[in-house]
């Protein structure tokens, strides 16, 4: 008899889900890079981030999945879209695309790196990491993934966490200072208008 729950819990389905997500992510990532209009790229980037969040959720990292959509899709890409529309950018022309020697060299090197990484992965030579004490069963027994991540983030990693908050503060100030209109320029324009 076909046992549905057993099938749902089996590795066959999770591998199928993973391959579906992987194929989608690859296609959408490609579209992000090759779309001519930046707005299209931004929209595909949102879809990509959404699919990645699905992949994270399938790995029991619900907190990270939610944060991914909230911060990346909800804030960062909106910012991109906003700037694109504010500057009223047009589609890139493919004609302007040309190779310069350093870029070609960089592409070649990165492609070799890509081949080495893929080869190593398939050879099964990925180094054995240090096994932590947080298997899925242990996490579920101790109050769930979100609780455990929060506990670890706010005890062991409290100083990096505080540093990250300082970094955000710095970025806010920097963004305002950089994007602020030049006062001298502004007064000049006003003089011209008068």
């Amino acid at each position: 008899m076909f046992d549905l729950p057993l099938f749902l819990n089996s590795s066959l389905l999770s591998i199928g889900v993973f391959h579906f997500f992987a194929a989608m992510i690859t296609i959408v990532s490609l579209l992000v890079v090759v779309s001519q209009h930046p707005v299209k790229s931004a929209v595909f980037l949102v879809v990509d981030l959404f699919l990645l969040a699905g992949l994270y959720a399938s790995m029991d990292s619900h907190f990270i999945a939610a944060i991914q959509i909230l911060v990346y899709a909800g804030a960062i890409v909106v910012l991109f879209l906003f700037v694109i529309m504010l500057l009223n950018l047009k589609a890139d022309s493919i004609k302007g695309l040309r190779f310069s020697a350093p870029e070609a060299a960089a592409l070649l090197i990165s492609f070799i790196g890509f081949l080495i990484m893929t080869f190593n992965v398939f050879r099964g030579q990925a180094p054995e990491g240090i096994k932590g004490g947080f298997s899925i069963e242990a996490i579920d027994a101790n109050g769930g993934n979100t609780y455990m991540v929060a506990m670890r983030l706010l005890t062991t990693y409290i100083w990096p966490f505080e540093l990250a908050s300082m970094l955000i503060l710095l970025a806010i100030v920097a963004a305002i200072v950089i994007a602020k209109k030049d006062k001298i320029l502004k007064s000049l324009i006003q003089k011209e208008l008068r």
Binding site: S61, I64, I67, K131, M148, P160, L167, I168
Partner: peptide
């Protein structure tokens, strides 16, 4: 590797990406 540090690193990476 049944470790939580990966997820915590992602929190930091997202912070840096936002900045």
């Amino acid at each position: 590797n049944s470790s939580l540090d990966g997820q915590i690193m992602v929190v930091f990476v997202i912070t840096v990406a936002a900045c």
